[in-house]
């Protein structure tokens, strides 16, 4: 199985999907030879993580993905703000014309 992440299209849904793959599967290969894309080849999980580290790893993974999610949400906010500003400037232009 493989999953290709296009960084520019990354959103919270895709990020959660990726997190799910990493939690529940075995990574076979990661290929980043194509600019802006990461191809992850994975398979059914065969190796069980040493139990002593289960909670720690889950905690670290969750924290990291929370940070990434914040970045993505921040990016989305900037995009929306940018769109609102464009719309606002178009309206302002029209008002000025009248």
């Amino acid at each position: 199985m493989e999953y290709i992440i296009k960084i520019s299209d990354l959103d919270s849904e895709k990020l959660n999907f990726l997190k799910n793959i990493l939690e529940n599967n075995q990574i076979i290969n990661i290929d980043n030879n194509h600019k802006g894309e990461i191809k992850i080849v994975y398979d059914v999980k065969k190796i069980k993580l040493n139990e002593k580290f289960n909670n720690r790893i889950e905690l670290i993974r969750n924290k990291y993905y929370r940070q990434l999610l914040n970045l993505i949400n921040y990016k989305e906010k900037i995009r929306l703000t940018h769109q609102i500003l464009i719309l606002f400037s178009i309206r302002l232009e029209r008002v000025e014309r009248y």
């Binding site: 992440i5 960084i7 990354l10 990726l18 990493l22 075995q26 990574i27 990661i30 980043n32 802006g36 990461i38 992850i40 190796i47 069980k48 993580l49 040493n50 002593k52 580290f53 790893i57 993974r61 990291y64 990434l68 970045l71 993505i72 990016k75």
Partner: peptide
């Protein structure tokens, strides 16, 4: 969004104490 040009992918199978 330069910060997520590379996304971290957890690539390790296990952890061992020596």
């Amino acid at each position: 969004m330069a910060l997520i040009n590379y996304i971290g992918v957890y690539n390790f199978d296990n952890i061992f104490e020596l």
